[in-house]
Computed example of a mutant assay.
Amino acid sequence: MLRHRFQPGRLIAGLFLAATGAVYAGDAGGLWETPWFVAVPLVVGGLCTAGAVGVLARSVHRRRGTARAHPDEPRADLPG
């Protein structure tokens, strides 16, 4: 398996989306009643939180000098 940088924003987004799925799975299973509009704050709040965490993580990686450039971007130390 190739090693990759940990991306906490994607983890947060996945957790919120999984929680939304679990809420509606419980509703479908008859464990509780869930109004249709419950998904909106869960998904939007999760995506906003994930975006903030992603921006924070990226700034920390850049400050520490551990950010990797995208493979398609030209490198500054190579000519052309």
Rank of each mutant, 00 (worst) to 15 (best):
R3S: 13
I12R: 00
E73H: 12
W36T: 11
L56R: 14
R63K: 15
V55I: 13
V60R: 12
R63A: 15
P74M: 02
R62K: 14
P35R: 09
G29C: 07
A69W: 01
P41E: 07
A50H: 00
R58S: 10
H4D: 14
R75I: 02
P8D: 08
L17V: 08
Q7P: 01
F16T: 03
V23C: 09
R63V: 03
P41H: 08
V55C: 10
E33A: 14
F16E: 02
F6Q: 04
P41W: 07
R10P: 07
R64G: 01
G45L: 09
G45V: 12
V40Y: 12
L15Y: 06
V43Y: 04
L11Y: 08
S59I: 09
A19N: 04
L78C: 07
L11W: 11
W36V: 10
L47M: 12
A19Q: 02
T49W: 12
G45S: 11
A57Y: 04
G26Y: 10
A25F: 03
A13K: 04
F6W: 13
H4L: 09
L2Q: 15
M1D: 12
L78T: 10
R64T: 00
R75P: 00
V44L: 14
V44G: 04
A18Y: 04
V60H: 05
A76D: 14
L2K: 15
T49D: 03
A52E: 14
L47R: 03
A50K: 00
G51M: 11
R58W: 10
A67M: 06
G80I: 13
M1F: 12
V55A: 14
G14L: 07
G14S: 09
T66S: 13
R3M: 13
P41R: 09
G9C: 01
C48F: 08
D72S: 14
L42S: 04
G29R: 07
G54W: 02
G29K: 06
